[in-house]
Measured scan of single mutants.
Amino acid sequence: KFGRVHERAEGPAKILAIGTATPFHWVDQSSYPDYYFRVTNSDHLVDLKEKFRRICNRTMISKRHMFLTEEILQKNPNLCSHNEPSFDVRQDILVSEIPKLGKEAVLMAIDEWAQPKSKITHLVFCTRSGVDMPGADYQLIKLLGLSPSVQRVMMYQQGCFAGGTMLRLAKDLAENNKGARVLVVCAESSAIGFRGPSEDHPDNLIAQALFGDGAAALIIGSDPKMGLERPIFEIVTTAQTFVPNGDCHLALHLREMGLTFHCTKDVPPTIAKNVESCLIKAFEPLGISDWNSIFWILHPGGNAIVDQVESTLGLEPNKLQATRNILREYGNLSSACVLFILDEIRKKSGREGLKTSGDGLDLGVLLSFGPGLTIETVVLR
């Protein structure tokens, strides 16, 4: 008597548009150690500064975009301390800036989509910054002038794996609601975790050397309108798992001094060791076991992770080039990073006149991972 209210779509979910945005301000990685130790009044920690310089040199990052300028840091000195309470200051900045950054990426996506924004039916927003109620999803709806009846899902504090999570959720929403057009937004800022150095917490140096700011937005829907919408990728399958006891290797915690970062040297080999089982589960039903026969979007948690995944799986050097390019130009953008790589690989395919948006290949994989050593596996066509 009370059956399904919403009719299912006929076809699989497809990515119809991609937009990205970054803050205008950026830092050069080669000179960042001098800048970082100067603005945090830590130049007296000579040995720690040299250690940080070595870490920065190993990241293979060229530059990173950041909202925090020297002027902002001078006005808010607690942000430059390692342990002073600064959460309220971070909140005041990020509750406002995260939706604005997301808006810039959304406008780029809508411009490519070339359809009225009134056709957006759902919003899925993800960030690890600016936790608030009502959330960044609500603020973004107002900034864009979208209908208050847009169906919203707000996900805070997920971390680097969440780019894949957003695709998984959007696929379910698009395929189970005929005519749905799902706006996916990942907006991230390193301002939540920026803090001064400490000899007692070397993990913090890794975070300060890796993370950048950026937002990515996608429009996802099934059954694209012929002649009006141009699909870029099809989302074939999605899956999530985590490595048992992985939280002892990688975890982040909200504290009075901001978001703290805990990471062990076992993260790269542990991820590399567990990736292939995810690939087998995803691609065995499709008859694929040659990992060089697919295109790759791999989250660059750090250069060591990229190198070890490449080595463990025997990947050809060009397979992870898009990942390395984004890491070099932006650093680790947390949940937004794989979506930047997705954009990079389709643009490169277009520039080179390849037959598909995925490096000329039919199928590919998007792998994202993060806290708890959670792994998201997304098969794309």
Rank of each mutant, 00 (worst) to 15 (best):
E7A: 09
G360W: 01
V131Q: 14
D247I: 00
V89K: 14
S96Y: 05
D43W: 13
V379S: 14
R128V: 06
S293F: 01
H44G: 08
F340W: 12
D247T: 14
K63D: 09
P244D: 13
L259I: 09
E352L: 15
G358H: 03
I232T: 03
Q308F: 01
E316N: 00
D343I: 00
K265Q: 10
D47K: 00
L68S: 08
K355D: 04
L68Q: 15
K281P: 04
K273P: 15
L73V: 08
P285Q: 08
W26R: 10
P33A: 12
Q308V: 11
P116R: 04
G350R: 15
R255K: 14
H253K: 11
C126A: 07
V267T: 14
K75S: 15
T323D: 00
T237R: 10
G364I: 00
A9K: 06
K63T: 02
V39E: 10
L252S: 14
R324H: 00
I341S: 07
N332V: 10
C337R: 13
E10W: 02
K100A: 10
M257E: 13
E104R: 14
H253Y: 09
G302P: 06
E70G: 02
I271N: 03
V306L: 14
I72W: 07
F295C: 03
F295A: 05
F87V: 14
S81C: 02
T264C: 09
L107T: 08
E316L: 12
G258Q: 00
V365L: 04
E276N: 00
A13Y: 00
I18F: 07
E104T: 03
W113P: 06
W291F: 00
T121D: 06
L48W: 01
L315M: 03
E97Q: 15
I72L: 09
K281V: 05
N303G: 14
G314C: 09
T238K: 02
L140G: 06
L366A: 13
Q308I: 06
Q74P: 03
F283I: 06
G301A: 13
D290W: 01
T312L: 14
H299K: 03
T121N: 03
K51L: 06
R54V: 04
A336T: 07
P300N: 07
T264S: 07
V306A: 11
L315Q: 06
L143E: 14
E112F: 06
L327Y: 15
R38W: 04
I305Y: 07
I341P: 00
G331V: 03
K100G: 10
W291S: 10
K14L: 11
L298E: 08
A322T: 07
H65Q: 04
L354D: 15
K1H: 00
M257A: 14
W296M: 02
Q74V: 01
T323W: 02
E256Q: 10
I271H: 04
L73K: 09
H122V: 02
L298Y: 13
F340Y: 10
Q74L: 11
H262I: 01
V89R: 11
A109G: 09
R8V: 12
D307P: 11
H25N: 06
K355L: 02
L107V: 11
A13T: 08
E376W: 00
L144M: 04
P300K: 11
E329W: 01
F369E: 15
V89I: 13
V46A: 07
F283Q: 09
D92F: 02
K51D: 08
N41Y: 08
G19A: 03
E71P: 14
K142L: 07
L79V: 07
L286G: 07
C263W: 09
T20W: 08
D88P: 08
K355N: 13
R351Q: 11
S293Q: 03
L361I: 00
L380W: 03
L79R: 03
V236S: 03
L123Y: 09
V5T: 08
R381A: 00
L315C: 03
D359V: 03
V378G: 15
F261Q: 15
V379Y: 05
V306F: 15
S30G: 02
V124L: 13
T312I: 12
I345R: 03
K273M: 01
S335W: 02
N57S: 05
V365H: 14
E234P: 00
A105T: 09
Q29F: 15
G102S: 12
N76A: 12
V106I: 03
P99R: 10
D343T: 02
G372W: 07
I235V: 02
P317V: 08
S293G: 04
R255V: 05
H65V: 06
F369N: 15
A109D: 05
M66G: 13
N245M: 15
L373V: 08
P317A: 08
C80A: 06
E256A: 09
H122A: 02
F242A: 05
I18C: 04
I280M: 09
I326A: 15
Q308D: 10
S81R: 12
Y36T: 00
G358S: 10
N57H: 05
I375S: 15
K49P: 04
L373C: 11
Y138S: 14
E10Y: 08
G314L: 04
D34Y: 00
